[in-house]
């Protein structure tokens, strides 16, 4: 099968709606298809990978740890928009340190998160073949 560039566009905060969780479920399945997978976190989507998520008070399952498992599925292109962080008073330090192990570099741990400007994000989006929006 031909390889396509799949982009998962995440623009919504987790828990308020099911989109973040069910987007992640698609991403995990997608890993089995050996396509070129990227995730974009834009607008409120940046809250999906905020660190310190605690759902004890809302009776819902905290699924944030799953983002840390993406590296095991060779999904390591998580584009996060700088302006979206700044507009929400956040910096990269507020995000989970999501890592992957580079098989070709003696399993060195490398960050999956790539902070990009809005203009860079536009170009990243333009470079994809399939856009799933959640």
């Amino acid at each position: 099968m031909a390889t396509k560039k799949f982009m998962y566009v995440n623009r919504k905060a987790p828990y308020g709606t099911v989109y973040a969780l069910e987007s992640l479920e698609v991403v995990l399945i997608a890993a089995a298809f050996e396509q070129d997978v990227s995730l974009a976190f834009i607008d409120d989507g940046v809250y999906q990978i905020a660190k310190g998520q605690n759902t004890d008070g809302i009776g819902m399952k905290n699924f944030s740890a799953t983002y840390n498992a993406l590296g095991d599925y060779e999904i390591n292109k998580l584009y996060v928009e700088k302006e979206s962080l700044e507009e929400r008073g956040l910096t990269e330090d507020d995000l989970m340190p999501i890592m992957w192990e580079d098989e070709d570099d003696d399993w060195a741990e490398k960050p999956s998160i790539r902070i990009v400007s809005r203009a860079e994000m536009a170009n990243v989006l333009a470079d994809q073949d399939v856009h799933y929006s959640f």
């Binding site: 566009v9 989006l125 856009h131 929006s133």
Partner: peptide, 8 residues
């Protein structure tokens, strides 16, 4: 167009 993106 070559592709589409929905801004949902």
């Amino acid at each position: 167009n070559d592709k589409t993106q929905s801004w949902v």
